[in-house]
Amino acid sequence: MQRQVLERWLSVGVMFGLGAMIIYKWQTNRLNLYIHPRYTSLLVATAVVLLLVAVGMALTKAPAIPKRMLALLTIPVAFAVLVPARPLGANLVSGKALNANSSDNLLARWKTNLSDDSKSWTLLEWTTAVRQSDLEVLRDKQAAFEGFVYRTPDLPADEVLVGRYVVTCCTADGTALSLRVKANNGADFSNDQWVRVEGTFVPAEINGSIVPQIAGTLVSIEMPSSPYLYP
């Protein structure tokens, strides 16, 4: 009898935990680390339903849920409690980077209308501009965009890649964009630090080919409340 009661309350607890996890992530502005903001209200509604069902399970003495199912559904809750929430970052760029030779159409599909003021461009707009135009046309345009620092071993100390993910639905479809930045203080930054790039577009010649690059400084910033870009 004791054991049954325990199992029943465990079932209620896991159901409650799932709902509470979503509410907590919503309240702490972390839901958008995982999904496109357009689904936020849908998720909050779902969380309310789960919490109500949990209360209902407790009040009606609903039967216990089999242990294997409880154990598996504890996983997302355990992740939420024990693993620090962090957005997709430098850790996954190698797996999710945009393939350079096939990205043109992809970017065209993300239809970005470029304004005349290049200082308002996000990294997505910069990437689009770089693909669409002659690099010389962009020369000396001013840049002020945000992203995280991503280093690769082949870059000199004062050069970093500044990256950001584009998310269509959820983090499962995140695609990493990045632009090379040569910064006088570039050596001070390490992977995943969020920065604002302030500088101008100056194509650089590397190993005989011209590559897009921003020259300027990096300013350390807090992670933006929505770390991803949404096309």
């Binding site: 680390l33 995982y34 992740f79 939420a80 693993v83 997709l88 970052g89 850790n91 983090t171």
Partner: peptide, 18 residues
């Protein structure tokens, strides 16, 4: 890597939950 895995997992799981 594992923290990235968790973020991707939560993305799929949370998205599908509703």
């Amino acid at each position: 890597k594992l923290q990235g895995l968790v973020t991707t997992f939560q993305g799929i799981f949370i998205e599908a939950l509703p």
